[in-house]
Amino acid sequence: MYFDGAARKDDAGAGVVFVTPQNHLMSYAYMLTQLYTNNMAEYQALILDLQMAIEDVRDLDIYGDSKLVINQVLDEYGVKKEDLIPYHQRAMQLLNQLDSIKIGHVLRSANKLADTLVNLAATFVLRAEESMQVLVCNRWGVSLLEREEILDTTNMIYVYTANEDDWRQPIIDFLDHKNYPTIPGTG
């Protein structure tokens, strides 16, 4: 499970990506309806994700890009901020319901999908009782065959024959046949 949370001036979001043993992805995004700090949003993402996971999963590998949250859950950092204590306690209660857990910190670059989901969720404007399903597909607007046809036409050569009175004709003659233009009066 990869999780991420983010808070901004007027909105907050949480995202999770579950990777099954068969490498199938299940991704979820949540618009958080209250204003949070970034650390609160990270905890909120972890808690929401754990609540979903404990229904069906007993063994879970958990990855997040918040060093603070990961290290607090691992008891390597103490929880000093009063407003984070309830979040930490709830996360620990949920973690204790799992049989086996592995928790690790990942760089933001390794958590891109969860981060993208957070940003997507934070941009929606929904009332508390509303939800929205968004299907994201991986498709090209132009198929490979169509692209090849387009590329084939881009290498076409167009031939233009200039009239002898056309000022461009001497330039064309020089480029095509290395014929130097005659200067009037020089014979």
Rank of each mutant, 00 (worst) to 15 (best):
N23Y: 03
V134G: 11
K112T: 12
R127A: 15
Q34S: 08
K102R: 12
I101F: 09
I85F: 09
N155T: 13
L135C: 12
Y180M: 11
E146I: 09
A121W: 10
A114L: 06
Q34K: 10
K80T: 07
Q72R: 08
M92G: 07
H88G: 07
L175F: 02
T154P: 03
D59R: 09
Y43R: 03
A29C: 15
A110W: 12
E55M: 10
N138V: 01
I85A: 11
Y77I: 03
K178I: 03
G185F: 07
F3C: 01
D115C: 07
M31R: 05
Q51H: 02
A128M: 11
I150S: 13
D11T: 08
K112Y: 11
A41Y: 00
M132A: 13
V19M: 13
Y43S: 08
I101M: 05
L60N: 07
I150E: 14
D61E: 11
L144M: 12
L35D: 06
Y43E: 02
N71H: 03
V19D: 06
T37K: 04
N23C: 10
K80H: 08
L50T: 04
Y158M: 09
I47V: 05
F124M: 12
V136G: 05
A162K: 01
I183S: 01
F124H: 06
A91R: 01
I47W: 04
M156C: 08
R168E: 15
L145H: 07
V79R: 04
D115A: 08
Y160C: 06
A91W: 08
Q51Y: 03
T33A: 09
V134Y: 12
A53K: 01
T20A: 08
I150K: 11
N96C: 02
R127Y: 14
D115R: 01
L98H: 05
N38G: 05
N96Q: 00
M40W: 00
V159S: 08
W140V: 05
V142R: 14
S109E: 15
L25S: 14
I62D: 03
T153Y: 03
L60R: 01
K67P: 04
C137A: 15
V79Q: 11
Y43M: 05
E82G: 07
D165C: 02
I183G: 02
A162Y: 03
G104Q: 15
N39T: 06
G78M: 13
L175D: 00
A162P: 00
L113V: 07
T20P: 05
T161D: 13
V142C: 12
I103A: 01
T182W: 14
V19S: 00
D10S: 00
A7Y: 02
K112P: 00
D165Y: 06
M31Y: 07
S66Q: 06
G187M: 04
R108E: 02
D165G: 06
R127C: 15
T116K: 11
E149Y: 13
H88Y: 06
N38C: 06
Q22Y: 13
V142E: 14
H177T: 02
